[in-house]
Each structure stands twice: as C-alpha cells, then as structure tokens.
Design a protein around this nucleic acid. Structure first.
Lengths: 205, 205
DNA sequence: TTAGGAAATCTAACAACGTTAGAAACGGGT
DNA sequence: ACCCGTTTCTAACGTTGTTAGATTTCCTAA
C-alpha cells in the first residue's frame, strides 16, 4: 500500500513541476513561448505526459491564472497592513498596478478573454474580497454610507484593471500608471465622501 | 495606361473585400474563427492571395483594429452632440461600454496585447482626442482647472476601458457596466470639481 | 493576329501547434 | 520468474500561418 501513496506523491510532484515550468516559461518568455512541447522539454518529459496531469492546455493555463491571483492576493494582504485607511486604499491601487508591471505576461493570461469567464471570476474572488474588506473599513472610518456597495467595488476593480492595462498595453509607463491609479482612487473616494453630506446619509444617485 | 489604373482599382477593391470578409467573420464568429484560409474562402480566393494585400495576419488584424476605432469614433461624435456638458461626459462613458457590448470581438482585438503597442496607440489617438475635447469643454464650463490635463484624460480613458472590460470579460452584464461607467465618471468629475474650491484655482495634488 | 512577359492565382509544401492512439518499457505483487 | 497495470514514448492527425514554384490570365508590342 505504501507504494501507491508514493506513486501518488510522485504524480503530484511532477504535476507541480509542470506548473512551475510553465510559469517560468510564461514569465520569462511570454505567452507565445508557452507551448506544450516546450513545457514538456523543460521538465524532461515528452509532450503527451502533460495530458496525464491536465485535460488540455486551457486547464494548465487556468492553473497559472490561479497562481497569479494567489500571488496578487499575498501582495494585497501586505498592502492592506497600512494602518491609515486612506493610504491603505491608494496602496492597494499602487500594488495592483505594480503587479501588472512586474508580471506582465502573468497579468495578461489572468485577464485573457480566452480563459473561461466563470473560472476566472472564481479564482479572482479572494482578491476582490480583500478590496471589499478594505472598502468596508474605509467607508466605516469616514462615516460614508455607499448607496450600492457592490457597485462601488466593481467600479474600483474596473478602474484598477483599466489603469493597469494602460501600462501593460503600452500607453503609459508603469510608474506613471501607479501614480494614475493612486490619483484615480483618491478622486473616486473623495467623490463618494462628497456625496455623503456629513450627516452620514447617502446622497442622491 | 488606363488598364493599369483599372488593375490598381481592382487590387484595392479585393483588398477591401478581404477586410470586410475578415470583419464579418470576426464579428459573427469571434477571433478563433478568424483564419487566413477562412477569409480567403469567403472572398473566393486561395489563401496565399491574402498575402498579396497584407504582409501577414497581424497587418490584416491591424486593419480591423483601425476600422474598429473609426467605428467607435463616429459613435463618440454622436454622443458628443449632447448639449449638457455633464451629461455629455456620461454619454461618452455609456457609449464606450455599449460599443464593447455590441462589438465584443472587435473590442477584443482592439485591445489585444498581441497587436503592436505603437500601432494601437496610433489608431486609438483620434478617439482619445474626442475625449480630450470633451474634457476641455467640461472643465471650462465648470471653471475647473485640472492640475494635470493629460493625467486626467488617461484616468478617464483607463477607467472606461476597465469598466467596459468588466462587461466583456464576463464579470457583469453590459447594462450594468454602462451604469457603472456613468456612475464612475460622475464620481470622478465630482471629485475634480471638489478639488477646485470654487475660486477657480487648482487644489493640491 | 500572335508571340512574349508581367501580373495574378493556385497547388503543394513546410514548420509548429494542440492533441490522440498505440506500442514499448517499467516495476511491484503473486 | 511471470504478469499486469502504470507510465512513458514514438508517431501521427488535423489545423494554423506562411512560402516556393508552377500555372494561368491578360495586356502589350511586333
């Protein structure tokens, strides 16, 4: 019986090595170099072996997308330790754009329309939850009652993605995009505070 | 001599037909169906003929991207006729997201990281210029002096793209994304007005 | 009217891709 | 020592973008 558990362990191990190899190829050489044969060569196997661990290439890529979101999650958690509630929000913005700049190819597949929409939403959920937490504490700290909390989150998330895309699509440099994201967040939050006219009630939409 | 001009005319004509066929395939069946052989079949030629009009597939796709931006430009100009300066801005936002919803596959290639960044920026320029115009008249109408005009434009552009992406990436429906874009724009503009404290001078950055 | 030559077009092929089938090799249990 | 299941490989299929070379078309010039 011990041999079967060892075999399972070995299986899981090579599976992990495949993911790591794929991640390495993606991050260092971009999405164009991410081929099954290339990955197989890097882990010193023949191509079909990959299909014993993943149904198809999309399933493997999805694993990379999940890894990317986990990575982003840890960096978000670090930024979320900033004590000041306002700076905490801009820190998140800056961190999001920085991630896109430091892992451009990973960021690309994380937002590739080719990967299944439901799966992408699923793996992105924990990251968005951090944003939700932060927005909750921020609005509480400023006595701001948002008319529609989910809507506010979606606006923030979309804005961050859009400005990060400015960078990775080549419109502006990453440093500038980080600054833009911070400013955009500041402005939006200021707008939300302004909408709540000091008595703590939401203003008209 | 007249025959050569006729030949040139015919050449230009088939070139145009190729673009139209490619556009039709893209819009109706998506980017996965956009293959050279498929396009050639649709215009009743063999595949290599395409290469007599375009250096490679990327060049043909770039033509579609340019077409997409021209289309977006006309819809922007239409939205820009709204007399009220505030509603004009939210109209643009709504129109941008609507475009992404009505031409999802076109929108996809228009923002595909695979197409050359410089070329993409070049063809997108006229559309961004409309946004710049509108922001100029808006700020003038409200006595708002933006600390950094280009930065403000980039924020708006990035925000619109990000929220439109929420829709075409499948996070939210297009109707909701349109509403989100309008709200986001309203909030940002409100923030900029708030930063300018009624005396017409810019506030701190 | 016809021979020549450029332009246009086609067929066939190449390399690389994702993916699958079937053979070969391996390795533990009886 | 044999056997059977697992693992792995080789070979192949169909499709992609792209190119070379042959073939056809069609205008020009004798």
């Amino acid at each position: 019986m011990s041999t079967s558990t060892r075999r399972a362990r070995e299986r899981a191990n090579t599976r992990e090595r495949i993911i790591e190899a794929a991640l390495h190829v993606l991050e260092t050489e971009g999405v164009a170099a991410l081929t099954i044969r290339r990955i197989a060569t890097d882990v010193e196997y023949s191509a079909p072996v990959v299909y014993q661990h993943f149904a198809n290439k999309d399933a493997l890529v999805l694993e990379l997308v999940a890894h990317g979101h986990r990575l982003m999650l840890t960096e978000f958690r670090r930024a979320a330790q900033e004590p000041d509630t306002d700076r905490r929000m801009t820190c998140i913005a800056s961190q999001y754009v920085r991630f896109a700049g430091e892992h451009p190819h990973l960021f690309q597949v994380m937002n590739d329309p080719m990967v299944d929409a439901d799966e992408r939403r699923r793996v992105a959920e924990p990251v968005i939850d951090v944003l939700k937490e932060l927005l909750t504490t921020w609005s509480a700290a400023h006595d701001v009652v948002l008319a529609d909390f989910d809507q506010a989150c979606e606006i923030l998330w979309g804005t961050l993605y859009g400005i990060a895309s400015l960078s990775y699509l080549g419109s502006v440099g990453n440093d500038r995009a980080r600054y833009l994201a911070e400013q955009a967040l500041r402005t939006i939050l200021l707008g939300w505070r302004t909408e709540t006219p000091a008595n703590g009630r939401p203003a008209s939409s």
